[in-house]
């Protein structure tokens, strides 16, 4: 057997091993976490030109404020609700909202802590003084929501993970976090066990089903269903985690367009420069 034959065989074997590994690994993955992977939803903010739907963010905020905020902290400044690229609440509404919170401040001149009405520059107050207190009350500490939608991903496996980065149909999948939140809110499938969730790792979740149909009142005619709430609150949480998304994609388009044109001009300049050189 020549060296080349040996090598071709080795390579062939390597490819075969890789193939087998891929198959075995998907099997291994399947029984490693038995919870299903969340299904991909349609989001207005997905894709290269995605933007948030203001009304949806405002509804999502309402769901957060009326329901989730009882247990989960959202560590972002209140003023950001009025920023461009977000829910864009009018300034007076933001002020009124901030004032409805009581903030502990101090010490004052005589050394005492005091309560005062909130200002837009304050952060949303946390529902519990510390995570330990929350865990004692609820069985587990609810995660802070400011980055929740960016801090959850799941294994996509080969070859899907490659397309997730690319601008191809069905690709550019960056919304795994919101899909997970949406899935968790739908995952309470066992009536006999309120703490069983299909999508939570290990299925045992300390949070009981937080949302049901009709729980939050919508005034804009949007259906007040669990499905709609889940989408709205997941969108809101994605904005909370990535408030610069709209600006980022808008500028990105201009930058890429500029670079594309520049690359074209440079290509022809280079061609001209090298035209009298054999290379």
């Amino acid at each position: 057997m020549t060296f080349k034959e040996t090598l071709t065989k080795t390579l062939g074997l390597a490819v075969a091993v890789a193939g087998l590994t891929a198959v075995a690994s998907s099997a291994a993955r399947a029984d490693e976490h038995e919870q299903p992977t969340p299904t991909r939803q349609e989001w207005t903010f997905a894709g290269p030109f995605g933007t948030f739907d203001r009304a949806q963010l405002q509804r999502g905020f309402k769901v957060y404020k009326e329901v989730c905020s009882n247990c989960h902290e959202l560590h972002i400044p209140i003023r950001t609700l009025g920023q461009t690229g977000g829910p864009e609440l009018p300034e007076d509404q933001v002020k009124a909202l901030a004032a409805s919170f009581t903030i502990k401040d101090g010490p004052n001149g005589s050394g005492d802590m005091f309560d005062r009405p909130g200002r837009p520059s304050d952060y949303f107050p946390a529902p519990f003084p510390n995570p330990e207190a929350a865990a004692t009350a609820l069985g587990a500490a609810p995660p802070d929501m400011s980055l929740l939608a960016k801090s959850r991903k799941y294994e996509r496996g080969f070859p899907k993970f490659i397309f997730d980065a690319l601008p191809v149909p069905g690709g550019m999948y960056q919304e795994l976090g919101p899909d997970y939140i949406y899935a968790i809110l739908h995952g309470y499938e066992k009536d006999e066990d309120p703490n069983w969730n299909a999508y939570f790792p290990g299925h045992k979740i300390a949070m009981g089903k937080p949302l049901v149909d009709g729980q939050v009142e919508y005034t804009d005619g949007t259906p007040a269903t669990l499905d709609q709430y889940a989408k709205d609150v997941a969108s809101f949480l994605y904005w909370a985690a990535e408030p610069s998304l709209e600006q980022r994609k808008r500028i990105g388009f201009r930058v890429l367009a500029f670079l594309f044109i520049l690359a074209g001009l440079m290509y022809f300049t280079k061609k001209k420069i090298w035209s009298n050189v054999a290379h």
């Binding site: 995660p143 801090s151 991903k153 980065a165 890429l256 670079l259």
Partner: peptide, 25 residues
């Protein structure tokens, strides 16, 4: 410039693709 096109694609469109989600905790 061609490499920058790739780099900017990551920065502006899939900035968290290469990162681990756990590092946002």
């Amino acid at each position: 410039v061609v490499f920058l096109l790739l780099y900017c694609w990551f920065i502006f469109y899939v900035p968290n693709y290469l990162g681990d989600a756990d590092n946002y905790i």
